[in-house]
Design a protein around this nucleic acid. Structure first.
Lengths: 206, 206, 206, 206
DNA sequence: CATGAATGAGGTTTCATTCAT
DNA sequence: GATGAATGAAACCTCATTCAT
């Protein structure tokens, strides 16, 4: 995972601010336009700095993209663990996890940029970009199994299939939301899926 | 039809073949690499023709991409109408429609190229690329309503929500399949979702 | 030795001409200005072609420089073998060899470019540039030994020292000539050294 | 000299040290790499100071290079006059002068940097760089004539030719030594030329 | 005096498109 | 109809220089 982690100490406060501004501006551009069509000129102007300054903080355009993805991962991970630490049965936790992520996606430009960057297989970026998907699937699988145990999920579901099912749903919602209105409708969309997911996974009722 | 008239058609015949070769080669490239990273040189070599010759058949790279998307639409549409013309209740039709599309996606390079091209909002291509999504949703909605009528779908489902649900699932599966193995696993994946979709949409059983 | 040897067949006559024009123009620039200060813009205009066309024929500025050096080597080698194949004793052959090389240096732009390129150790070019010097020394050594045998060189000279002596003289003359008048005076200069070299190497006379 | 006057000189003292450090560091870089490829960043780090600080002591990169050349000239001049002030006939003085310079070249980084800087005609530096060569030739000429008078040099030598001969030899040795081992072998090399030079210039023997 | 951060001009390289054969 | 060669705009990146602290 290149791009993650500080290279230099960054001695001045001003530098840190600039660095953050770059990540923010870059994410904004990357969330609107495919990586290869994102112009350095735009990253710079969106960040309010000169083009050359980018290279004081990052080694290349590629590195900037990696950093955006890294921050996105961090934030999504943060949101996730926060939600999962709350009480409730596994199914509820799962659904509120997706809801929380949907909120994050709708509101956080860096997350949007990171997501869109990941949706471009075959790019220079491919490497740093493939792993996350697998991680989500793994997590979902764990939650499904947990749900079977605590009774919130039907015992006859295929854990792997269900995990991918949830993931496909989430990713599809991202793509559709992006197409529709740049992720603004993401939370609504996910919420509208909830009842169907509940029916699909929850025990026959009671 | 005297032989004297043949000369032109014969030439056209060759042109048509070349044209198809271009579309096929282009689709192959577009299915692996984002539009902006697809090199004309690669389209040409993958099609087995020279770079300059592309411009005899198409006005620009953009046009080639459009044509790939057009053919993809055509083929998906064809597969769809073929499936939908068969008998069965709406839910069954719906599921076999998605299954058929999944097969198509897994086997047809042009369809793959078209799909991947569509997954790049914000591009030059954006215009020609946005509509199809809406159409799928519309179609799904109609089928859901049909299902409510013929009793294959629970009467209390929200047609709009269910339509988007199905669509998100399908699109998410595409993205995941592409990431995983260039769409090879698409049919399996969709089939593994079927039981969950049935439970989510079908009436409580009896 | 990258840059030496044809990459592609170069199917068209025109291409071959252009390629040669590039080498010639590039050499002209490289003979006036250090590698790192040679502007592609100048290489192009001096060759009468567009900047981009350079990249149809060569992969990089570096490669162009390598090719110039390669051609220079070739030409110097050619001139050398031509001279050495003539009759005469070893000392005479040696001196007329240096004279012939001096003429070549004064008249051939590609040779000038190659020479100046080689005089920049520590550059990107370093690799392809170091070997030739050693080769000259080796050749001079052989001739000195030959001279000892045929009696045209004093038997008590140190072959290694004499070889480097001759080489230093030749290289120093190049540097001075370049400084003075872009190599124009090279032949005169070398000729003015001849008597001294004869005295230094020839037997005490009689 | 009251203590109250010392404050400024003290500051200057520090400045002088920094200035010297810069020249030393710069020379080290300039001796390895052509002017245009020498990075200010490297000059700075090699000098142990910050990039910005360079501009407190010098107006530009070009100025630093000039200063390196100036110091080099100074030191070579110093070594020369020291040697020439000793006794002996002209030929001996000449040879020990070159020997002394060779020692200096091998041991003094600033001299190395200066020499390498001068070997780049066509640069921004060209102006300040051309003169020295002429001066060496002039000096050598004078010594040759002196030698003719004191009998240490054959009376029939062409003073101009001999002067350039000696110079070419010295410069060629520099180039070869630099290529071979960054000037380390310079003294050995020059010494190995001595016998040949003696034979070339000294009277027929006796 | 010194430092790290920022600027901006300009360099090399890429690549869709056009041209001559 | 087709090819290889050429163009030129624009992209990414470098780096001497300047600025704020």
């Amino acid at each position: 995972m290149p791009g993650s982690g500080r290279r230099k100490p960054l001695k001045q406060q001003r530098a840190i601010e600039t660095r953050n501004a770059i990540i923010l501006g870059a994410a904004a551009v990357f969330s609107r336009v495919p990586y290869a069509e994102a112009r350095l000129k735009d990253l710079a102007s969106e960040s309010g700095i000169s083009e050359g300054a980018l290279y004081f903080h990052f080694a290349s355009k590629r590195d900037i993209a990696f950093e955006v993805v890294a921050v996105q991962q961090e934030r999504m991970h943060g949101a996730l663990t926060e939600v999962l630490s709350r009480g409730g049965n596994a199914l509820d936790k799962m659904l509120s996890a997706y809801a929380a992520l949907a909120d994050l996606v709708a509101s956080d430009v860096v997350v949007q940029g990171g997501i869109y960057l990941q949706n471009q297989p075959g790019t220079e970026l491919a490497d740093a970009t493939n792993e996350p998907y697998l991680e989500w699937v793994r997590l979902a699988r764990i939650l499904v199994l947990e749900g079977v145990e605590d009774g919130s999920v039907r015992p006859d579901v295929d854990a792997d299939g269900a995990a991918e099912f949830l993931n496909a749903l989430f990713i599809g919602a991202q793509v559709l939301s992006n197409h529709a209105d740049s992720w603004a409708s993401m939370p609504v969309r996910m919420r509208s899926f909830e009842p169907l997911v509940r029916i699909a996974l929850a025990p026959a009722s009671s």
